[in-house]
Every structure is written in structure tokens, then in C-alpha cells.
């Protein structure tokens, strides 16, 4: 069986006296090995201290994003066979480092939801005995298209703006607002949306470099969503008093 060399970023903020360094490991590489399989193997056989995150291991939960050979990717769905040479693994930038490859995306994304007020704003009371409000199936599909974001952070890590501006909500944030804007159940006014995202923290902070569009593992149409929101924000901003 062939072998594969990994070069992995190591640093634990709890032991700051040990400076960050790259550590190398070599393991056997069976066909069809994913980075998920590889990292677990390294932890179980070579180095039980290695920190990284996986949950679903099926590209659904968004836990395992890391920088793999220079690109932010989901580790669970990256086959080592698709990579050339030594596999270099770095934690995602922007997010707070927990240790080695593990970063705190949870806190960041909760902040995003709070900032963009990511919930249905409705004045209706729930009536358990009434039938549901109708919705066009096309609309439902359109909402789902934006809702598919798994909060993995790849779009944020690859984004220059997010790297220099701490408060920038990134493609995930702008896409999130798009999700609510197309939802007829959300009663927010133009002005309210504008307040949420009509600034450099949101739509106007984006410089259109589209690293996000290249990196989204869910292949969300981010360029489309970003420009949709930007145009809406201009019209909301110019029309709202």
C-alpha cells in the first residue's frame, strides 16, 4: 500500500509557551481515504493529542472545514487521492483557534444570526387548530436554496474582507439575509433589512473577489446572492426614508 505524508499545523492556545509549528506524519493510504479517515488514523495510531472536529463525516453539518493545500475545504469529503504530494493542513483563519485544526465557528455563526436577526419576523400568533398558510412550491424551493448553507465557514476563511474586518458578515451572512428576503412569511420592511445589512459590515463591505463563490462546498450561488442583496440594498436604501 502506498503511503502519504501530512504536514499539520500544531498550536494549543492553552500552552502558549509552545510556539506554533508544522508537524509531519506519514501513514498508509488505502484507496478512497478521506481526510476524516486519515486524521482519525493519525490520532489513534500516532498522536492522540491532535485536535480536529468532525461530526456527520458526510458533508452535512459543516464542522470540519480546514485549509487543505491552500484551499478552505470540508475535510470529510476531501479524498486524499485527489491531492498531490504532501497534504498540508491548516486551521481556518478568521475564526478563534481552539487548538491545532479546531476552530470556533459556532460562536462566530451565532453572532452572525444575532446580527442579521436570522429568524422569521412575523406578527402572527400560532394557532394550533388552523391549517398552515399556503406557499408556492417554487418559493419554498427558493428559500431552501439559500437555507442550504451549513455554516462551515469556508467562504469566510477565503474572504480577504473578512480577514481584515472583524465585523464583516461575509457571504454566509449576506446569503442568510437573502434567505429571509425571499421568504414571504418574514414581514420585515425594506428599512429593517437595510439596517441589518446595508453597510460595510454587510453588502457594501464585499469587494467582489468571489473567493467565497469558489470555496463554498454546498455550491451555493453566492455571486448571485451577493449581487441580489447588493442591488436590493441600493434600491431599499434609496427608497426608504
Amino acid at each position: 500500500m502506498s503511503t502519504r505524508k501530512f504536514s499539520i499545523f500544531r498550536y494549543n492556545p492553552n500552552t502558549p509557551e509552545v510556539k506554533p509549528f508544522m508537524q509531519e506524519y506519514t501513514i498508509e493510504e488505502p484507496p478512497g481515504m478521506t481526510i476524516f479517515v486519515a486524521l482519525n488514523k493519525i490520532r489513534e495510531e500516532l498522536d492522540p493529542t491532535l485536535m480536529f472536529d468532525f461530526v456527520c463525516r458526510a458533508a452535512i453539518c459543516g464542522s470540519c472545514a480546514m485549509v487543505i493545500n491552500g484551499k478552505p475545504r470540508l475535510a470529510c469529503k476531501t479524498l486524499t487521492g485527489d491531492l498531490k504530494g504532501t497534504v498540508t493542513l491548516m486551521p481556518l483563519p478568521v475564526f478563534k483557534l481552539i487548538g491545532d485544526l479546531s476552530v470556533d465557528t459556532g460562536t462566530w455563526f451565532r453572532h452572525l444570526s444575532v446580527k442579521t436577526k436570522s429568524w422569521i419576523h412575523s406578527s402572527k400568533e400560532f394557532d394550533p387548530n388552523a391549517i398552515e398558510d399556503r406557499m408556492d412550491n417554487e418559493t419554498a424551493l427558493e428559500i431552501y436554496e439559500a437555507e442550504r448553507c451549513i455554516e462551515c465557514g469556508c467562504c469566510i476563511a477565503g474572504c480577504v474582507t473578512a480577514n481584515i474586518r472583524e465585523d464583516f458578515l461575509g457571504a454566509a451572512g449576506i446569503n442568510r439575509v437573502a434567505r429571509f428576503m425571499v421568504d414571504p412569511r418574514d414581514e420585515r420592511s425594506k428599512k429593517e433589512y437595510f439596517e441589518v445589512i446595508g453597510s460595510d459590515e454587510g453588502a457594501f463591505g464585499c469587494m467582489g473577489l468571489m473567493a467565497c463563490d469558489d470555496n463554498c462546498p454546498m455550491q451555493l450561488p453566492l455571486q448571485m446572492q451577493l449581487s441580489f442583496v447588493r442591488r436590493k440594498m441600493v434600491s431599499f436604501g434609496l427608497s426608504a426614508k
Binding site: V55, S63, I150
Partner: peptide, 9 residues
């Protein structure tokens, strides 16, 4: 894990 990464998703 963060709630949205729970297995329910």
C-alpha cells in the same frame, strides 16, 4: 457541538 451541527441536521 454548536447546535446546528447536531446530528438532527
Amino acid at each position: 457541538v454548536p447546535p446546528r451541527r447536531s446530528h438532527s441536521t
